[in-house]
């Protein structure tokens, strides 16, 4: 392994933190979804690192499944965004307060 496992995990942790911040702080619903993609990518990074560290293909297999589920999530999430946009133009989460009443 060219770098210590802890370095890979540190990069993954920082990327995951960036994704969490983006998801919680952004007001644009599309950028919130993209932040979840950043988080999933951070997890994939750890899985690939573990796969090499433990000398085992299962980490990479799990990362492939994560990518497949991320594609499904993107399709459904953006479908919801388009449906929301049809009822109420704009992509800010601050406007989506219809369930309050």
């Amino acid at each position: 392994m060219i770098v210590p496992m802890s370095t890979v995990l540190a990069v993954s942790a920082i990327l995951f933190g960036i994704g969490v911040f983006g998801f919680l702080a952004r007001r644009n619903i599309i950028l919130m979804l993209v932040s979840t993609e950043v988080m999933l990518n951070a997890v994939n990074l750890s899985l690939a690192g573990f796969s090499q560290h433990l000398d085992d293909p299962r980490g990479q297999v799990l990362a492939l499944f994560v990518i497949a589920v991320a594609a499904a999530e993107a399709a459904v999430g953006l479908g919801i965004v388009i449906a929301l946009n049809r009822n109420k133009p704009g992509a800010g989460v601050g406007d989506l307060t219809d369930l309050k009443q």
Binding site: S12, V20, F21, L24, R26, I82, N85, G90, A91, G92
Partner: peptide, 30 residues
Amino acid sequence: LDLPDEEAKPRFGKHWPFAACVGVATTLLA
């Protein structure tokens, strides 16, 4: 999507310092 006032509105919610704290805490926890 037509996003007319995306550039004008603030990009972060008012709670963004809290979100930054949660992000840093998640990183430290991991």
